[in-house]
């Protein structure tokens, strides 16, 4: 059974006013348990709106969203339960830290869930472990951490709720390449250990190409593609028409292909390109 299912969802901001704006148009898709989904689209494509719909921060104007087969708005009073099950990490999540210590901040979600103290302790330490925060940092004030550590502490705060689905909106924005690589590998190891569903929103195709099983491409509030990473990136020129940029390495392969050299264009990493060219020349 699909863990998340969207059925003809549409979202209209300011319906009935002069500022009416349709952010999402009749979107439908299914996501299986344990999948790693990348969501890409340019600014204003509706990707941030979509993820807020999926965890019940916004309510669709039309259509339904099912979590584990149940309509999430079936009982609007219990929407908090949905938010615990669909964990959401916003852009620049470090700006939401507020507690005296990192430990307390990470436990904010679990405390709100009403868990026992032992359970909370276990979850906080586990979550901190996933994002590579050392134990001695847990007793520090979150405001004394470095930028990268703050980001990871904030992500741990969501992981600690042990959600069925973890959504991350641009988790690597503003990080340097070192921080970005570290964070992406932590997310991907979290995914492989927990076997949870992860949705990663980004406009960096390099990031998504590296870890996503399937990619959802949005443009102007509509679903353009939902397919495996290889299949999506083999349609490189279509992506570029949508104003999205394919990884530099993919573009090199596209250029070679255009000049008549029979290389695959669904290449996403330097490693793959290297092998492709070595194979071609022997």
């Amino acid at each position: 059974m699909a863990v998340l299912k969207a059925e003809n969802i549409r979202l209209v901001y300011g319906a009935g006013t002069a500022f009416e704006k349709t952010a999402l148009k009749d979107l439908s898709f299914e996501i299986e348990k344990g999948e790693f989904i990348g969501i890409i689209g340019h600014t204003g494509s509706g990707k941030s709106t979509l993820v807020q719909l999926l965890n019940g921060l916004l309510r669709p104007t039309y259509g339904k969203i099912y979590l584990n087969g149940k309509d999430i708005w079936h009982e609007p009073k219990k929407i908090r339960e949905v938010r615990f099950k669909v964990g959401m990490v916003f852009q620049y999540p470090e700006y939401q830290l507020f507690e005296e210590t990192v430990y307390k901040d990470i436990s904010f979600g679990p405390v709100n869930m009403g868990l026992s103290e032992e359970e909370i302790d276990k979850r906080v330490r586990e979550a901190a472990g996933f994002v590579g925060l050392k134990d001695e940092l847990l007793t520090k004030s979150p405001f004394d951490l470095s930028g990268g550590e703050k980001r990871r502490a904030a992500i741990a705060g969501v992981i600690a709720m042990d959600p069925d689905v973890l959504i991350l909106d641009e988790p690597t924005a503003g990080l340097d390449p070192l921080g970005r690589d570290a964070l992406l590998s932590q997310i991907s190891s979290y995914h492989s250990v927990r076997k949870n569903t992860v949705l990663l929103v980004s406009h960096s195709m390099e990031d998504i190409a590296r870890i996503a099983d399937r990619i959802l491409v949005l443009s102007h509030g509509e679903k353009v593609m939902l397919d495996t990473a290889e299949n999506v990136f083999s349609r490189g020129s279509e992506l570029e028409e949508l104003g999205l940029r394919v990884p530099q390495i993919t573009r090199i392969m596209m250029l070679l292909r255009e000049s008549g050299i029979p290389v695959n264009t669904n290449i996403l990493t330097v490693e793959q390109a290297f092998n492709e060219i070595v194979n071609l020349s022997v």
Binding site: L57, R80, Y95, F108, G109
Partner: peptide
């Protein structure tokens, strides 16, 4: 706008 964002982020962590 920032208040709005922070409120959403805390709601996502179950703040009531």
């Amino acid at each position: 706008e920032e208040t709005d964002k922070i409120m959403n982020a805390q709601k996502a962590r179950g703040a009531d």
